[in-house]
Design a protein around this nucleic acid. Structure first.
Lengths: 237, 237
DNA sequence: AGGAATTAATCATTCGATTGAATATATCCC
DNA sequence: GGGATATATTCAATCGAATGATTAATTCCT
């Protein structure tokens, strides 16, 4: 177990392994990434994986923790601001809508933008499709919090309580409008006949994304529990 | 190369291998699925994979072809009907909206419903995240056709031509509202605290899905090429 | 000197693929 | 019809390569 190290390049190998892990695990998935490929790409010795992380699985877990840490540092404060606004009973509808717009812009930026984001998102998607033992790490550390922020805003705007089933389903559905560009990146690029989503395209997605989300909120009427479709709607802001 | 065979169980091993391949490849991905696991699960000999398909990769390609075949047989006629309606210049707005509703219902059914659908969709998602050499098979055989149908309806309803960039992006985004439930199935189930998406939940998704898509179409205003936001809108049906 | 970190070498296991023999069925010739 | 031949399929055994992990020796720095 490595403890304090006063070397100039303290934890350099460890760090390089994690960064390489993000890239390779994201590209090929857990199983298809060999420890040798990792060590070579990280300019590290094969044994250092076992030494620092106890094995391939330990490195993978460390990679997920690293992703959660970076991502939450990036968007965590923003999510907290969203929750604060939503907790304020006196927040105006316009204020809530503005918060929603910020969420869309953040979502698109995080999901699509950035070189590093790509590898991050790919690992997250891999975990969604074929969850490993470390799935909880991502879910509790990231997915749940993002969902909670979206659900908070949408809950205020629709009048549905945050534990409502329809609200949770709709929240996922609305987020899906943007997640698709990460998950269906291969098909998207083929469809647009280009090699990467340019800033211009991202801006376009943000713009119509905001329009679509607002249209959804404006047109909202509860559909779950058919008999009760008449209730609660007067609580909407 | 196996040709005509009048055996009673003609191609039985071949068929069993493909069916098992759908299941295992979907569960663990291409790399993480071993030929031994495939052969054992299919009650076949290890050598039969090479014999029938030339190797693991050949079996995988056959699995993708099988998926495309089944899926297109399932939804192909429906997609053709959609294209027919959209090609009819005299089709009313209500007719187009009804077509859109059918597409939503089909999408949810295909993406979420069915035991077999699960393995199918998982393979498709795997290919999206980490496209293999056989990606084209899925894209040309399935993705492209589904996208084309959605784009045709949405194009008519928004007045955008089918080769318009914004239309294509919006089409993907709108489809994303339903794809998310397949791709984010793990997170969805955790969020709802259940083990499978019941028929009741699927019906709920269809209902609010239709509502949301209609709201998006109703609230549509072009956002791409900012200077031209004033044009074309009068062509909408 | 002494602990932390790195290195090369090696372990047993598993991988995908191939082989040649064995089996089963179909086709042909008389 | 019936033996002989040809073809299609299955099977157990084995190949070399690659895998994850471990070890003991070595290097590096305080």
């Amino acid at each position: 177990m490595p403890s304090k190290n006063t070397h100039a390049n303290e934890g350099a190998t460890r760090r390089k392994l994690i960064e390489t892990g993000v890239r390779l695990f994201g590209l090929h998935g857990f199983e298809a990434t060999s420890t040798r490929a990792l060590a070579t790409a990280a300019d590290a010795n094969l044994g250092s994986i076992s030494y620092h992380f106890g094995g391939k699985e330990g490195l993978y877990r460390a990679v997920l923790e690293h992703i959660v840490e970076i991502k939450m540092a990036e968007i965590g404060p923003g999510l907290d601001r969203v929750l604060t606004v939503c907790a304020d009973a006196s927040a105006s509808r316009e204020k809530l809508l503005e918060t929603l717009r910020v969420l869309v812009r953040t979502m698109v930026g995080v999901m699509i933008g950035g070189e590093q984001s790509q590898a991050f998102s790919q690992i997250m998607m891999q975990e969604q499709i074929a969850p490993t033992a470390s799935f909880d790490l991502l879910y509790s550390g990231f997915f749940e919090k993002v969902q909670a922020a979206w659900a908070a805003v949408l809950g205020r705007l629709t009048g549905l309580p945050t534990d409502n089933r329809e609200l949770r389903l709709r929240t996922l559905s609305i987020m899906g409008q943007f997640v698709i560009f990460r998950v269906g990146m291969a098909a998207t690029l083929r469809r647009l006949d280009c090699e990467k989503l340019s800033d211009e395209i991202m801006e376009c997605i943000v713009r119509f994304g905001i329009q679509q989300v607002e249209a959804i909120v404006d047109g909202f009427t509860p559909v779950d529990q058919p008999g009760c479709a008449c209730g609660r709607q007067e609580d909407r802001i």
